[in-house]
Design a binder for these strands. Sequence first.
RNA 1: GGCCUAUUGGAGAAGUGGCUUAACUCACAUGCCUUUCACGCAUGCAUUCAUGGGUUCGAAUCCCGUAUAGGUCACCA
Length: 485
Amino acid sequence: MNKVRVRYAPSPTGYLHIGGARSALFNYLYAKKCNGDFILRIEDTDIERNIPGADESQIKDLEWLGIYADESPYKPNEKYAPYRQTEKLDLYKKYAYELVERGLAYECYCSEEELAEMKENQLSNGVKSFKYDRHCLHLTKEEKQKYIDEGRKPSIRLKVEDNADLSFDDLVRGHVKFNSSDIGDFVILKSNGIPTYNFAVVIDDHIMEITHVLRGEEHLSNTPKQLEIYRYFGWEPPKFGHMTIIVNEKGKKLSKRDNNIIQFVSQYRELGYLPEAIINFLFLLGFTPKDNNNEIYSLKEQIETFNLEGLSTSPSMFDVSKLKWMNSQYIKLMDNEKYIKSISPFLDKIDYLKDKFTLTQRNELSLIFKQELNTLSDIKKEFDDIFIANDEFNQEENEILNKDSSKLILKTLANRIQNIETLNKESINSLFKEIQKELGLKGKDFYMPIRIKLTHKMHGIELYNIITILGKEETSKRLISGLIY
RNA sequence: GGCCUAUUGGAGAAGUGGCUUAACUCACAUGCCUUUCACGCAUGCAUUCAUGGGUUCGAAUCCCGUAUAGGUCACCA
């Protein structure tokens, strides 16, 4: 049996999309599972929408996620190169005209406006689905010349046969039936000489010896068209598998314009999601492992576990809270060294940390939050809660602060804290105990006023950490500010 | 509208005719732990598998119809 070769073929029209990442992941997993190759091909035939640098950025994001291509524009295998479609335009043209010569395709001179009019007419005449009316199928030499004289350039349409069975066995959905009569003569080469998606994919997949095509369900209805092209050339098509699409909370396909859900991998990176967590989350979206008691899978384990049978057939909703949970799991799993390294860029963005703390202190402080973070960028909020104190207290907080006992605690602590040599867990806690004993107060009654006065909040991390972070002077200052004796 | 696909709790889902009084995970709720929150631990959360028929001793699981949702019908990919 031939070596398994699968591909991920993005168009360079923007950043790596979450749906694209999942597509790439499943293809990658399947390739590695079968000891095959994972190929990255750039489908840049829509020259209007191409964005310079988009392919590099997508590859970079993919690698950040841990997905490396065996072949790509930057890592070509000469046998299959080039890996960008616009670099082999002549080839597509050659194949397209080969079909024209064999009478299986024809030139079409219809303009955009004429096509639109045709469509409208058909629809208003009760036609259910638009099909090209083959206006240009039997053009005479003279008619053609007339169009050419008008300055028109032809596109090429495939002459789709009537009533041919275009069914196939889908790797994830089983047998899917299509009939060629439902498909109109579609364009394979645009009038600008660039192939359309459906044509270029077939040529490329054939030339690159792609054995399996795993793609989104939105391509299901493209498959019969591609099958028809394979048939005309007499090539053996690859095996197709159509995966479920990812939908938003409204059940609609994630579109790039959807603002409710963050769409791009780079944005997740900026928010402090870990690549392992994203990959793991995507892995479980639309796929269920056989042994499904575990939810945490490394990339290596994903390769071992993956199989086509586990792919689901109904759409999966993108659930951010589960992603967050997954991310927090991976943060907890990291050893301290790796954690500090990962969180460092986020700490750099917090100005007051830079000013007041050494790098070592800063790193130690961040460790305090390790168990609490969902995403690494949350660290900013945690520090802000401590450093950016406002002057307002709500009613509940005021009630606690106005107790005589509370005032006593605050005053006593503000004074005694000055006598401590070095602030740390032990020294602070023993001071707490000392004062508790003297005043005969403990538990919430003792700690709450301190917490409220220091952070203006009733919840947060342990107090000795807060005091360590604030330092003696700031702690005292906050404790006695506004106190009336 | 045509074609295609899907339909198990708020979300991801297991389940392929009797071990299911429907796993597991997230979310949510409650309790324990803790100076508070979080973490962790424990418990609860679908008498029911879109719906109506049928097959069967027995159906979420098989068959037929209906409904709903999604995908696609481009010189976009």
